[in-house]
């Protein structure tokens, strides 16, 4: 039996993790936080392309530059694969420079404090004076719903065919979705389901 390699098929999550030097858990976390687009479903497996790898590499540089996740998300949103390549080249250049500047713990902290001089300064007292966090009223009947974006997953089944699902499905619907995706990819794939 001639099984296609993961390279031909796109990368499985383990392969992507290995190539980006991050854990599988981290990849799932980034997807759930909207930093990475949801993977393609191929047969029984999800697969990732070069775009995902570039994004992971860029995230790593941004994290090393101490950017919070939400800012990383904004910077990466809407970039094409080509734009990602350009961005990475720039990031690589600046990273080499800064890496040399912080080889020891003391260098690292000095570098950080130089970047964030506000760290040692006095905050505006009227805004921050109350050290106790404000007591939030508890309303047992109303579940707390802070405003936030809902995360949706896109599964490209075939060119021009996309299935969308919310990230917040319950276990039963998650299982149904999985079956639906398998079924759908079987219909649209002329080669049938693959076992990778």
């Amino acid at each position: 039996m001639n099984k296609p390699t993961p390279e031909e098929e796109g990368m499985l999550i383990g392969e992507l993790a290995r190539r980006a030097n991050v854990s599988v858990r981290t990849i799932r976390f980034y997807i759930s936080e909207g930093l990475l687009p949801a993977p393609q479903i191929r047969g029984r497996f999800t697969s990732y392309d070069e775009d995902a790898l570039l994004r992971l590499q860029a995230i790593r540089y941004f994290k090393e530059a101490f950017l919070p996740l939400r800012e990383i998300r904004e910077r990466l949103a809407g970039l094409t694969t080509e734009e990602l390549r350009t961005l990475l080249a720039e990031l690589e250049q600046t990273a080499t420079k800064t890496q040399e500047q912080r080889s020891s713990a003391v260098d690292y902290i000095d570098h950080l404090l130089a970047q964030k001089p506000a760290m040692r300064q006095v905050a505006e007292p009227d805004r921050f004076f109350n050290a106790q966090p404000p007591k939030m009223p508890t309303l047992p009947l109303l579940p707390a719903r802070p405003p936030r974006a809902e995360t949706w997953r896109h599964f490209s089944i075939a060119p021009g065919i996309v299935i969308q699902a919310s990230s917040g499905l319950d276990a039963i619907n998650e299982k149904r979705l999985e079956e639906l995706l398998q079924f759908a990819s079987r219909i649209f794939s002329s080669k049938g389901v693959r076992n990778a």
Partner: peptide, 21 residues
């Protein structure tokens, strides 16, 4: 509530510092 307050960012600094001993 003053200085760096982002959990993710502080965790990254902790990681970098333990890597440096």
């Amino acid at each position: 509530n003053v200085g760096i307050t982002d959990r993710e960012e502080l965790a990254e600094h902790a990681r970098q510092l333990s890597q440096r001993g």
